[in-house]
Every structure is written in C-alpha cells, then in structure tokens.
Amino acid sequence: MEKLKDIDINAVIWKSIKNDGLNLDYTVVIPRPIANTILEELEDTLEYFAGDLARIKVFGKVHPLPRQQVAYGDPGITYTYSGTTVPALPWPAPVLALRDFLFALKGIKYDFVLVNKYRNGNDHMGEHRDNEPELDHNYPIASISLGQERDFVLKHKDARKPGKDKKDIPTVKILLEHGSILLMNPPTNEVWYHSLPVRKKLLGARINLTFRKMRIK
C-alpha cells in the first residue's frame, strides 16, 4: 500500500454533481496498476460476515444479503441498518491504508467503513438512504470502488412518492469506475435514495468501501 503515497493528491480533479439536495464529488484517483494491487490484497485479506450478519430485514422479512459484507472501525463502534447491527472489526492493514489515503486527500479521519463485495452482476443493493442516527451527517460518506464497473443510481425522495405527490425529478446515474472515489456530501443522504441495480451480464467482482464518520456519544 506504499504506492498510494506516490499519488499526487494535489493534481486530483474532482467532478461536481449537484441537483435539488444532491451534492456529489467524483474522481478516478487511483491508477489502474495500484488499484489492481489493492483489489488483490483485499481479496486475499478480507473475510466476510456469515450467519445472522449475512442477512437483512426488508419489510419485516429476513432475506440473505445479496452481496458479501464486513465492517471495520475504531474500538466499540457498531452500526445498525435495516434491523441489523454490525460490529466494527479491527482495521486490517489494506483498509487502514485506504483510510489514511482519504485523510491525506480530504483531511477527514473516518472511524468506520462498511465493505461490500459484489461477486458478479447478480449481487446488488436496493434503494436506501445512509441517514442512520449514529452517523455524523456533517461529513461526507466516501465510497471507494475497486474492480468491476457498476451503475450507481440515485433517486430523489419526492420522485418515489405515489400519485399526485410524486415529482418529476430525473434519476441520476453514475458509472463507478475501478479506482474511483465518490463523495456523498450533505444533505445528499437526507434527500436522495441510492442503489446498485442488478446487471446480469457483468461477470466481474467489485469491492466497495464506504467510509463513514460516526457521532461521538
């Protein structure tokens, strides 16, 4: 992971994406050879949750998680979403190196990360907002993508309403590339839902790390 330190962070160019309550910054910052090395190291290092932690509750019913997942963070942190509370395991070296890279890039020291592995295009994530109360909503969620490119789809909460309350606000779609970082700045997760839809024709694996800042209790 020493190669991350060779990246000139002063030369990084961010693409800003803004709409009604939407505030995103996107860049492909990790060169492909370094991104390939990181992906291989994560594949060799990470072990994903099993058992109850590999299930999710949707509309009161429990289902197998349609992807693999694990969480890391500072001591004592847990994260609850969709009726599941996941513990933050101790930081493994390659994930800690990515956290340190984000600190060098944005000056934010994240204390928790949720790692999702999408084994192929059948693995997915449904529409949701990362607006849980234990998150510090003053900080962006930083999403690092490695491996198979996948569509990231965002939909305004008012565009999801039924009937006459529904507003005609276009969906936003971003192709998350190998070695990219997406910053979901506030108030994005209060206003917009996001998802990673099924793409059955895609065969490659993708590992996504969403770094978060938790509220101090």
Rank of each mutant, 00 (worst) to 15 (best):
residue 196 L to S: 04
residue 164 K to P: 01
residue 17 I to N: 03
residue 164 K to F: 03
residue 31 P to T: 06
residue 54 A to N: 14
residue 91 W to G: 04
residue 18 K to W: 00
residue 26 Y to N: 01
residue 168 D to A: 15
residue 162 P to I: 10
residue 42 L to R: 00
residue 170 P to W: 05
residue 160 R to E: 12
residue 104 A to G: 14
residue 157 K to S: 13
residue 155 K to L: 08
residue 31 P to E: 10
residue 97 A to C: 01
residue 166 K to G: 04
residue 122 N to T: 10
residue 1 M to R: 08
residue 140 P to L: 11
residue 140 P to W: 04
residue 69 Q to D: 00
residue 86 V to G: 00
residue 55 R to Y: 10
residue 58 V to L: 15
residue 75 P to T: 03
residue 123 D to H: 13
residue 77 I to Y: 12
residue 177 E to Y: 10
residue 44 D to A: 15
residue 75 P to Y: 03
residue 185 N to G: 03
residue 151 D to K: 15
residue 76 G to R: 10
residue 41 E to Y: 00
residue 200 K to N: 13
residue 162 P to H: 12
residue 18 K to Q: 14
residue 137 H to N: 10
residue 180 S to G: 05
residue 90 P to E: 07
residue 191 V to S: 04
residue 151 D to W: 11
residue 26 Y to Q: 01
residue 70 V to R: 00
residue 194 H to G: 08
residue 171 T to P: 02
residue 25 D to F: 00
residue 87 P to A: 11
residue 211 F to A: 09
residue 143 S to W: 02
residue 156 H to R: 07
residue 29 V to I: 15
residue 33 P to G: 09
residue 112 F to Y: 15
residue 209 L to R: 01
residue 18 K to I: 03
residue 210 T to C: 03
residue 143 S to E: 08
residue 150 R to L: 08
residue 15 K to Y: 02
residue 141 I to K: 02
residue 29 V to R: 01
residue 89 L to H: 07
residue 17 I to S: 03
residue 215 R to E: 07
residue 37 T to R: 11
residue 57 K to V: 14
residue 172 V to R: 11
residue 29 V to E: 02
residue 126 G to W: 10
residue 107 G to C: 01
residue 26 Y to V: 04
residue 175 L to T: 14
residue 44 D to N: 14
residue 200 K to F: 08
residue 114 L to I: 12
residue 44 D to Q: 14
residue 20 D to L: 10
residue 187 P to F: 06
residue 94 P to S: 04
residue 105 L to V: 08
residue 169 I to W: 09
residue 121 G to D: 03
residue 150 R to T: 10
residue 206 R to W: 07
residue 47 E to R: 15
residue 122 N to C: 05
residue 64 P to C: 01
residue 114 L to T: 04
residue 65 L to N: 13
residue 57 K to L: 02
residue 110 Y to W: 07
residue 64 P to I: 00
residue 106 K to M: 09
residue 56 I to C: 00
residue 146 L to T: 06
residue 28 V to S: 06
residue 6 D to H: 11
residue 94 P to A: 06
residue 43 E to C: 10
residue 187 P to C: 05
residue 170 P to E: 03
residue 185 N to P: 02
residue 89 L to A: 06
residue 77 I to S: 07
residue 158 D to F: 05
residue 107 G to E: 12
residue 197 P to N: 11
residue 132 E to T: 11
residue 115 V to Q: 01
residue 150 R to K: 10
residue 170 P to F: 13
residue 104 A to T: 09
residue 107 G to M: 02
residue 74 D to H: 03
residue 129 R to W: 04
residue 7 I to S: 09
residue 176 L to M: 12
residue 40 E to G: 09
residue 208 N to Y: 02
residue 38 I to V: 14
residue 118 Y to Q: 01
